[in-house]
């Protein structure tokens, strides 16, 4: 296992003085093997980015904190196992980038607009490793080329001189350059067209095969998740709603939320009828849902019953399949 998330709860304060908060991640547990890709899927505002950021303790300080749980990362190369959730502040920078790194949803966070991309990657290397600048430059060049970017031509480019797809690939190069055990990729293809995003997916896959990296792939699109991931977490209002092998989840969704998500996208399946009304999930996700004591999907669910007004826990269906719903038969 390269990552074990164990009962992680993250508080987000809506009013710090009055100690008003909600759990933006609520008792989240899952684990990722070396070289495994796990997708986290859910609507906008469900807390996916927050969860991803928290795994590196990059969740915004002052307004949020990890209130309980553990995040164990380990590298396949040596047996060190570190609990990021409990790590001292001054030890964090050693872990970030080296054991776990991230492609941020907002590209402005990862790339500095006024520094040439080659120099940015060199800086990232030198922050962790003592070596000559020239050697770091060679590594940077190597990673750019792994990402199929013409290193010689682009080393001295500024971010704005690259296309969206190229910038995305530079960010992957930068995240991968220290050979981390875990890569968190937050919506890495959302802003890209089909072909470019396929290219980015292929490169993530390549990193998995060649570097054995484990990937947390965050997306709001189940159909992208299905082809890149081994396992999928369907996430809603800070909670895991359904968790299991991606194939099982797509072919046999059990949770009403998962079923709703699948039905709201025009599919490419054979039995699909053009122009048939798409399913619309009524209502919308609100911050109040995070505080709700009943099933958090209750207000929008097509299967709700009175029993759903209780707190619903994550049930184990079989082996690796978990569902948070009491009306699954």
């Amino acid at each position: 296992m390269s990552l074990i998330v164990d009962d992680l709860t993250v508080k987000l304060y809506t009013n710090f003085k009055k100690k008003e908060f909600f759990n933006v991640a609520d008792s989240v547990s899952f684990s990722v093997q070396n070289g495994e890709i796990i997708a986290i899927v859910g609507e906008s505002g469900s807390g996916k980015s927050f969860l991803g950021l928290s795994l590196m303790r990059l969740n915004p300080p002052y307004i949020s904190e990890i209130s309980s749980g553990n995040i164990f990362v380990s590298s396949p190369e040596n047996s060190e196992k570190i609990n990021i959730a409990k790590l001292k502040e001054n030890k964090l920078s050693d872990v970030r980038g080296r054991l776990i790194s991230m492609i941020f949803q907002d590209p402005n966070v990862s790339l500095n607009p006024v520094i040439k991309i080659g120099d940015q990657i060199i800086e990232a290397i030198l922050a962790h490793k003592k070596m000559k600048k020239k050697d770091a430059a060679d590594i940077a060049m190597h990673y750019l080329e792994l990402m199929r970017i013409d290193g010689k031509a682009r080393f001295n480019s500024y971010p704005h001189e690259l296309s969206g797809g190229m910038r995305q690939r530079v960010m992957i190069a930068m995240a991968m350059v220290l050979n981390p055990a875990v890569l968190v990729a937050d919506e890495p293809t959302t802003a890209l067209d089909v072909k470019t995003s396929l290219q980015v997916l292929a490169l993530i896959e390549k990193m998995r095969v060649e570097k054995n990296v484990s990937v947390i792939f965050i997306s709001h699109d189940l159909s992208i998740a299905r082809n890149i991931s081994d396992k999928t977490i369907v996430f809603y209002a800070g909670q895991i709603m359904e968790y299991g092998k991606t194939e099982d989840i797509i072919n046999n969704p059990v949770h009403p939320y998962t079923i709703s998500l699948i039905k709201s996208v025009p599919a490419l399946s054979k039995d699909y009828v053009p122009r048939e009304k798409l399913f619309v999930i009524p209502g919308s996700l609100s911050q109040n849902d995070f505080k709700s004591g009943k099933c958090r999907f209750y207000g929008r669910c097509f299967k709700k019953t009175e029993e759903c007004l209780n707190n619903i826990s994550l049930l184990k269906l079989n082996g690796e399949r978990f569902v948070r719903c009491i009306n699954i038969k």
Binding site: E43, S44, L261, S264, V265, L278, V280, I281, S284
Partner: peptide, 9 residues
């Protein structure tokens, strides 16, 4: 988002 996009379509 997918659910919103379904409405618009």
């Amino acid at each position: 988002d997918v659910s919103v996009s379904a409405q618009i379509l």
